[in-house]
Simulated scan of single mutants.
Amino acid sequence: MVDTEVQLKDQLASHSSSGQQEQVRGEREPDRTESLQNTGEGEVEEPLLSSSAVVAQAPPCGDRAACSCLGARWMESCLQSMELQLQLLTSKADDLHNWVASGKDHVERKALAEAVSRFLSNCQPYFNHLEYLRFHKSQHTLLPLDSYTWLLDFSQQLRDRLEQLVLTYASYNLLCLDETNPNSVSPYCMGQSKLGPLRVAEFRYFKPMPYLAQVHTGLYKRMRWNVVRLREEQREEGENERVDDTEYYFLCYEDIPNAHADAGGNGVSHGNAVRTWSIGKWVQVTPDTDDLYDWIMCEVPQADYRRLLFLGSDEPSSSSATVRLQQMLLSQQTAE
C-alpha cells in the first residue's frame, strides 16, 4: 500500500510538472500571457513571491507623475508574475481533478485526497499575496485602476477552480465538508488582508452550512470573515490579539416565504419562497460573560445574526462579497 502511494505521488508530480512546462512553453492565443517567459532551462519562475521581494520591487515615492509611471510598470510586472502562478496552480488543480475521475482504485484515490489537502494549503500564500497587492501597495503607490480588476479576477478564477476540485473529491467521499468533523476541509481560508487597524481573514464554506449547529434559524452560511481590531498598544508593541478583539461576519442566505413567488419576478425563487443573501455579524448570546469557566461549560455557543448588508436574491461571488465587506469596514473606520 505504501509503495502504491509513493508511486502515485511520483507519477502525479511528474505529470503535473510536464503539463505545467508545456503550458508555459506551448503556443497560446495572442494575449497578455505571451509576455510570460521561463526563467531558466526547463524551469519556470518561482510560484510565489515573498512580501520582501514585493517591497524590493516597489517604485520609490517622489514626483507624482513619475511615481505613477513607475507604479504602472511595477504593477504590470506583478500582474504577469501572478498570472503565471495562476496558470501553474490551475494546471495542478486540473491534474488532480482528472486523476480522480480516471477510475483509480480506492488506495490511489485516498493518496490523491491527501494531495488535494496539501494543495489547498499551498494555494493560501497566493491568495494572501493578491490581497497584499490590492491593499497594502495601493496605500503607498499610485496604481492603474484596472490592476485591481485583474487581481480580483485572478483570485476568483482560483477560488472557482478549487471549489470545483473539492466538490468533485467530496462526491467520491474522499473529502469531508461537514465543519463539525475535525477532518473537514471546509471552511477553507482564502486569504488575509490588513485594513489599517483591522486584520481580516476570509473563509469559504464549500457547501452551505446551518448558521447554528444545533438550532434551526433558517440561515445558511457560505462565507465567514474573522475581523481582528488591533488596539493601539497592540500595533505598537506587537502583542497577540485577545479573543474579545475578534469580530465574526458571515455571508448567509435565507428563504423568505413569498405568496407571489410563483407568479414571477426577478428574484431567485425556491418553491413558494425567495432566497435572499446578506452579510451579517455574529452577536454572542450565550455565554454572555467573559468568564472562562462559563465558556468551558458551554457546549455550543449561541448567537444572533445582525444583518448589515442586503445583497439581493443572487448569490455573490466570494471575491465580490469580500469587497463589499471590506468597503463596509473601511466606511466604519472613516465614520469613527
Rank of each mutant, 00 (worst) to 15 (best):
Y172H: 14
V166S: 07
F154I: 00
A115E: 13
P144G: 05
A113T: 00
S102R: 09
V185S: 11
S102W: 15
V116M: 06
K110S: 13
H129A: 15
R109H: 08
L151H: 13
D105W: 02
D146C: 05
T149K: 11
D94A: 01
C176Q: 13
H106E: 10
L88T: 01
A170F: 09
V166Y: 07
Q156T: 01
R134W: 00
V107Q: 07
R159Y: 09
Y169L: 01
T180P: 05
S147N: 14
E179D: 07
V107H: 04
R118G: 10
L112Y: 04
D105Q: 10
S147I: 03
E108F: 01
Q139N: 05
T149D: 11
T141Y: 01
K137N: 06
S121R: 10
S121Y: 05
D178T: 11
Q156D: 12
S102E: 08
P187S: 04
L112A: 06
R159M: 06
D160R: 03
N128G: 15
L88I: 03
D146S: 11
Y148F: 10
V100I: 01
R118W: 07
W150H: 14
D95Q: 09
L174V: 00
A115S: 12
Q157F: 08
H106G: 04
G103H: 11
K92R: 13
S138K: 07
L165H: 14
W150S: 15
G103R: 10
W150N: 15
D146I: 03
A115R: 13
E179T: 03
V116E: 04
F127A: 15
S147T: 15
P182H: 13
L120T: 10
R109E: 00
V100M: 12
A111G: 08
W150I: 01
A111I: 01
H140F: 13
K110W: 02
E108W: 03
P182K: 13
V116Y: 14
S138P: 05
S184L: 01
Q164F: 09
N98Y: 15
R161S: 11
L133N: 10
Q85I: 03
N98C: 06
E163M: 05
V166H: 12
V116D: 08
A93M: 04
S186G: 05
S117C: 04
A170Y: 14
D94F: 14
P144H: 14
A115F: 05
P144V: 04
Q164D: 08
D95H: 14
D94V: 03
Q156I: 00
F127N: 14
T168E: 10
T90Y: 03
S147C: 09
P182E: 06
C176S: 10
F119E: 03
T149Q: 12
P125C: 14
D178F: 03
P182F: 12
R118A: 04
L96T: 02
E114M: 04
S186C: 01
D94R: 11
Q164G: 10
C123V: 08
A93W: 02
Q85E: 07
L130G: 15
H106D: 09
S102F: 11
L162R: 10
E179M: 04
D160L: 09
E108K: 07
Q156S: 12
F154E: 07
L96K: 10
V166A: 03
T168A: 02
L151T: 13
N183H: 14
